[in-house]
Write a protein that binds this DNA or RNA. Structure first.
Lengths: 144, 144
DNA sequence: ATAAACCTTGGAGTAAACACAAAGGTCAAG
DNA sequence: CTTGACCTTTGTGTTTACTCCAAGGTTTAT
């Protein structure tokens, strides 16, 4: 059995995080000692590993709670339940990537259009684009 | 001159958002009427457009504040200042995309390994992978 | 005169995932 | 017997970008 600090150290996380997960209903100690200390068994070690791996692939704590509720009651759950959670997450992640890629394209376009030198920002193409209603790059204009 | 509700409507945003931007130091009304109503001029219309376009390319309000402080003092700023903000943002966005793509790859791997059918979750490859210390897909095991 | 549709300020609430601080109990070592 | 390293609970703070609410003043239309 592990005390909270031991379990935390084992996974390089904060003991507060374990208390937080407990409050969120993700990971409860298997027992509590007479002195009030939380005690965790090998089962909780496994579950915590599960939680942290689920985090590694992008699941939120709420989603992990859903995964865990299936995990503890596998017999009454179906593959499709699990896969649905993964596929929902996949859709979310894909949508977010697409949004960020739009940002990335726009930012690259702005960056490439700008000389980035010590010239005055008065003629900066980036600022001009942000001023333009269409976010367009204004063609270079040479002063005579 | 526009009252707050008029300006909000013009840009399809909430009047509360304009008050919020004001509190954040992004957009102040050009004057206040005798009755206390905020009044916005064409200049603020332009600035609000600038703010919203900067948001469209992914800038946070804090970053937009930096952009605006350059925008209002172009003469004493350089292209390099503006480009640095864009390039910093580009790096952030790129890093975030990479993180999400790692999630995406893992999630796809999990999804593809799972039958997603009405089989019991007891043999679900997704759960097995999350249980495995290495997040590996466990090869299919047929019961005899 | 009154109702609707504005406007004001101030402050609270939301999500996410913790980190941290305060005040105090517990335990092993020296 | 005291020190230090644990542990407990409770509650607050962080970040971002709003959104909403309450209580009240103003304006416009009928």
């Amino acid at each position: 059995m592990f005390r909270i600090g031991e379990l935390a150290k084992k996974f390089s996380i904060n003991a507060d995080t374990l208390r937080f997960y407990e409050k969120q209903g993700l990971l409860c100690p298997s027992s509590v000692a007479a002195n009030g200390y939380r005690l965790y068994s090998e089962q909780e070690v496994k579950t915590l590993g599960f939680i942290l791996r689920a985090k590694e692939v992008g699941f939120s704590l709420t989603e992990i709670k859903s995964l865990l509720s299936i995990e503890v009651d596998k017999a009454n759950s179906e593959c499709s339940d699990v896969k649905a959670l993964v596929d929902d997450k996949l859709d979310q992640v894909t949508a977010k990537i697409q949004e960020l890629q739009r940002f990335q394209r726009s930012l690259k376009r702005l960056s490439n259009a700008c000389c980035g030198g010590h010239e005055s920002a008065e003629d900066c193409t980036i600022l001009q684009a942000l001023e333009s209603e269409t976010l367009d790059i204004v063609p270079e204009h040479h002063h005579e």
